[in-house]
Amino acid sequence: MADVPTCPICGKPTVTAFRPFCSRRCASIDLGRWFSEDYRVPSEPSDESTENSVEEDDLPA
């Protein structure tokens, strides 16, 4: 017997039209969590902050 994928929000079997979710409601809940920053993608600090900073040697005397 094949394993049926389940909705990551409620655990019900997924529906092809809303995959990987079971309904539009669960898809909207997930999207809301991304918008409210409940989910985050880990990343390394960028070098941009150091490139845009002014060093003491660059300041006029």
Rank of each mutant, 00 (worst) to 15 (best):
V4D: 15
P8Y: 00
S23P: 14
R40I: 08
D58W: 11
E37H: 06
R24D: 13
E55M: 12
A2H: 02
R33H: 09
S23A: 13
P60V: 12
K12H: 06
A17K: 15
M1R: 03
E55V: 03
E48Q: 10
R25A: 02
C22R: 05
F35S: 14
E56I: 11
E51C: 08
S23T: 04
P45D: 14
R24A: 14
E44W: 12
V41S: 05
W34C: 09
G32A: 08
A27P: 03
M1T: 01
D3T: 04
P60C: 06
D47H: 11
P5L: 09
S36A: 14
E44R: 12
G11M: 13
F21H: 11
A2Q: 04
D47G: 13
V54H: 02
R33M: 09
V41M: 13
P8N: 01
G11Y: 13
R25E: 08
D38H: 12
L31G: 03
D58E: 14
A2D: 09
L31R: 03
S28H: 07
E55W: 07
P42N: 08
R24M: 05
E55L: 06
S36K: 15
D47K: 15
P45R: 08
E48G: 06
G32R: 14
E44V: 08
F21K: 00
S46I: 00
P5A: 10
V15N: 08
V4I: 11
S36H: 10
F35M: 15
F18Q: 03
P5Y: 11
T16Y: 10
E56N: 14
P8T: 00
D3L: 15
V4N: 09
K12V: 02
R25Q: 02
N52P: 02
R40G: 07
C7I: 00
D38E: 15
S23K: 04
F35G: 02
C7T: 00
E44Y: 05
S36T: 10
D58S: 14
V54Q: 02
C22I: 00
N52C: 14
E37L: 09
E48V: 12
A2E: 12
C22Y: 01
V4C: 13
R25G: 00
S28R: 09
E44L: 05
